[in-house]
Structures are given as C-alpha cells and as structure tokens.
Design a protein around this nucleic acid. Sequence first.
DNA 1: CCATGTCTATCTATCAGTAGATAGATTCAA
DNA 2: TTGAATCTATCTACTGATAGATAGACATGG
Lengths: 174, 174
Amino acid sequence: MPDQSARDQILDAAEKRARMAGYHGFSFRDLAEDVGIKSSSVHYHFPTKGELAEALARRYTLRVAEKLGDPDDLAPGAGRARVVSLFRDALLIDDRMCLCGLFGAERDALPPPVAAAVADFFGLILDYLERAPAAVRRGEKPAALLARLEGALILARALNDPGLFDEATAAPDS
Amino acid sequence: MPDQSARDQILDAAEKRARMAGYHGFSFRDLAEDVGIKSSSVHYHFPTKGELAEALARRYTLRVAEKLGDPDDLAPGAGRARVVSLFRDALLIDDRMCLCGLFGAERDALPPPVAAAVADFFGLILDYLERAPAAVRRGEKPAALLARLEGALILARALNDPGLFDEATAAPDS
DNA sequence: CCATGTCTATCTATCAGTAGATAGATTCAA
DNA sequence: TTGAATCTATCTACTGATAGATAGACATGG
C-alpha cells in the first residue's frame, strides 16, 4: 500500500480541522504541522486558501456521491437510509460536522468558488433524494429531510447528546 | 431617545458579523471600526473574545425568549408559528444565520463558556416546544422541528433560494 | 463653592504571535 | 538533466491583548 500523497494528507488534515472550526478555524501552519511539512509546501499544493477549501469541498462531495451510489437502482427506502447514515456516521464515527453544513452556515465569509462548491454538494443530495425511490415519504420534501439531517448534527453536538440525532431524524410515528 | 450604549453597539456589530462568518470570522478591530472607536476600547467592555461571544450568545437567547413569550398561555399551534417565524425572519429580514446555529456548528472551536451558552439556547427552544400546546404534531419530536429550522436556514442560504426555507419547513401534507 | 478623589470611557502605543503568501535555494528521482 | 517537491527565509498585514495616559463626569467633604 503506497503512502498517501502529500496532497491527500493535507486535505485530510484540512477536513478534520474545517469540520470542527470552519473556514477561518484552521491555517496553513496548522496543516503543515499536522502533515509534518512546512507551510510553504502546503502553498505549493494549494496556492491559496480558497483553492484549498474548494478542493476540500469538491473531494468531500465526490466521496459522498461514491458512498451513495446510483439512486436509480436502489430498493425502495434504501436511498433514504444511505443518506441518513451518511450524517449519522459523521456524528458517531467522525465526531464531526458535515463539512458543507458548516461551510454553508459560513457562506457569507467564503470565497465565491468555495460557496459554489458547497451549493453543488447540497444540489447533489437533493437530486439524489428526488430520484431514489421512496427516499422521502408522501408529501415530504427532500429539502425537509436534508435540513433535518444538517440541523440534527448541530443539535446533537451542541447539546453533547448523540441520541438527539436519532430523536430529531426518526420518522414521526403514525 | 438616548443613544445606544457603546456596549450595545459593539454587541450589535459583533452579532452581524458572527452571524455571517462565525466566531473566528470577526476581530476586535472589525468591531471597533464598525462602532467608530479603537480596538482597545472594545477590550474595555469585553476583556476577552470569549467573554464577548458569551455575552453575545446570552443576549441573543434572551431576545429570543422575549419574542417567544410564555409558552404556557398560547393558543394551540401558536408556539410553533412563533418559533418558525423566528427563523424565517432571520433569513428573510436579517439575511443572516441563527447565531447559535452557526456557533453550534463550530462548537469544537469555541471557548467552553460560549459553547455552554449555545447549549442553553437550544435547551430553551426545546423546552418551549415541549410546553407550548400543539407546537409539534403527534409523534413529532421538538428536536426534529428545531433541527429542520436550523438546517433550512443553512440550505436556503447555501443555495441562495429563500423559498427553500418554506419548502423545508412546510408541514408534509397528510 | 471649591478641591480632591474616583469612576468611566476612551485614547495612543506597543507586544508577541499568527495570518496568508512569495522568492529563491535545495533535494532527489526519473 | 530536468522537473516535482520540499526547504529556508522572509514579507506585510493582522490577531488578541496589555500598559499607561487622558479627559470628562460625578461625588464628597472642608
């Protein structure tokens, strides 16, 4: 197994930090230390912070798309489950926010290309929920489910109660 | 009408900026410029940034509590409407995030007293939704509604589509 | 009524540390 | 020998924070 490229290591470190503290919550020096190189070497791979953050959001989106798979060949309800566990894993496994949820909240402070990449992320999920069979219930809007998931992540973390995620995302009974 | 105190002006400026860019997205010098004083004078009123942010979150929570009023004497459904329009106004009137929604997403990057103030905010809303008559539907959890509202704010802003807020928060038709 | 002291709010000036970014030298493998 | 990747060294601008001075309001006691 070949070592991960420096570029990937940088993105990994940036993702960890960005998903905790947001766009202004990490620096080139932070990432350099995490990876074990100098900050100028980080600039070699990503000339500006904006380019780094855009690459980050795009890689994040790509990974999500891979995990979700093609919405057109899924059993009814499977699409919903995949999306929900995507966010659930962010909370329970990574113990982090959704990168684009956090970036989205900071939209006004982002370089436009980063904001655009974040918008694409949300567009992807909404499209997936539209197309996957029975991903949303009758009358339920994809945007409603996606909003609930992003909000549940914030809520569960702010109140330090992972159970709140399930409470907030469970289907209302009856 | 007496002029607003410098302290309040500082908090107003901080709230505007924090609701766009988060905790690390504004500086003492930013606020000083906004208010028309020097950054050292901002430190006079709020010795540290953590104290400023905590005061910010607590004032925000207090204002929300005032707007919501006593949950115990409300017509059925009125509590829900008040909470929903709280978030709707943040989007359509202020064109800003919910302060505690953004701070909550950044939880790991906040000084503990700020994180605690944010937790109190969410506790207040959840408690209100529990107590106000028919604020949530049968089987619906207060956390589910609150999560949907915070998420809808992010979604609508990230996709630059205010209509998405209503789409995400509308009651599913039967 | 005035002199002394205290309080509030601001200022100027400065600190050490960090931010993003760049230039130019060096290393090393193909 | 060339090019990718890293380094050293540096820049300017900004960060949160502090020290010390100052001006004005206000009170208190002589």
